[in-house]
Computed example of a mutant assay.
Amino acid sequence: MQVQVRGEGVRKWVVFGAIAFGALFMIVGLILAGVSVSYLAGAERAPGRVVALEWRNDHTSSSRKKRVNDEPAAYPVIEFTSNDGTPRKFRDAAGTNPPSYEVGEQVEVLYRADSPEDARINGFASLWLLPLIFGGIGLLFSGIGTVIALVMRRHS
């Protein structure tokens, strides 16, 4: 009987941990979404053009394990002119394989007037991918933990 009580206590802590982990990830996702919304609200817009694709392997060289997808990712290099007439160039933070953009492709660039070097492509991956990943993982963990907690409560 005492072993069962200990086991139930452990299960409750695991469920609580899953819900707490999920809530933390949802909060991080909401914060990242807020950062994107704030960036959008204060951003200047300019036409840009993909001038190059920078291929990079992002894994560390100290890792000796062969990963499933060990191929390099293409990061678009964008050229645009800010409102002050200065030509600018930046590498987008989101790299993909296969490439999301082609050299010569026209894109819309978002940048802050006070900090034009902090520019982003006005696209899904640049603005919403991280908030959705964190929010989705958080929703999954807290949802599973909540369902398990409700089932455990019904059975007791």
Results as ranks from 00 to 15, higher is better:
Arg49Asn: 11
Leu130Phe: 13
Gly42Met: 01
Pro131Tyr: 09
Leu127Glu: 01
Arg64Gln: 14
Leu110Arg: 05
Trp55Asn: 09
Gly85Glu: 03
Asp58Lys: 05
Val14Gln: 12
Gly7Cys: 08
Glu44Phe: 04
Gly48Arg: 00
Leu40Asn: 11
Ile121Arg: 05
Gly85Thr: 06
Glu117Phe: 03
Tyr111Asp: 04
Ala125Leu: 13
Leu129Glu: 06
Val50Arg: 02
Asp70Arg: 08
Ala113Lys: 07
Asp70Gln: 10
Leu150Glu: 05
Gly7Ser: 13
Ile31Ala: 12
Val5Asp: 12
Pro76Ile: 06
Pro116Trp: 03
Arg120His: 13
Ile31Phe: 15
Leu53His: 07
Ile137Tyr: 13
Thr60Asn: 11
Trp13Met: 11
Gly123Pro: 09
Thr60Ile: 07
Glu44Cys: 12
Thr81Asp: 06
Glu44Gln: 13
Leu129Asn: 04
Gly48Gln: 07
Val109Phe: 04
Asn83Met: 06
Phe21Glu: 03
Asn97Thr: 09
Asn83Thr: 10
Phe124Asn: 05
Phe16Pro: 01
Asp92Tyr: 01
Leu24Pro: 02
Asp114Lys: 06
Trp13Glu: 09
Gly17Phe: 10
His59Lys: 10
His155Asp: 13
Arg154Cys: 03
Gly104Leu: 13
Gly104Trp: 05
Gly145Ser: 14
Leu132Ala: 11
Val107Cys: 01
Ala33Lys: 07
Glu71Val: 04
Ser126Gly: 06
Ser62Gln: 11
Leu130Gly: 04
Leu140Gly: 13
Val68Leu: 10
Thr60Ala: 15
Gly42Ser: 12
Gly135Tyr: 10
Arg153Leu: 15
Val50His: 01
Ile19Ala: 02
Leu24Gly: 14
Val77Pro: 07
Val68Lys: 09
Asp114Trp: 11
Val35Arg: 12
His155Ala: 14
Gly85Asn: 01
Val10Asp: 04
Arg153Lys: 15
Asp92Ile: 00
Ala52Asn: 11
Leu32Gln: 10
Val109Arg: 02
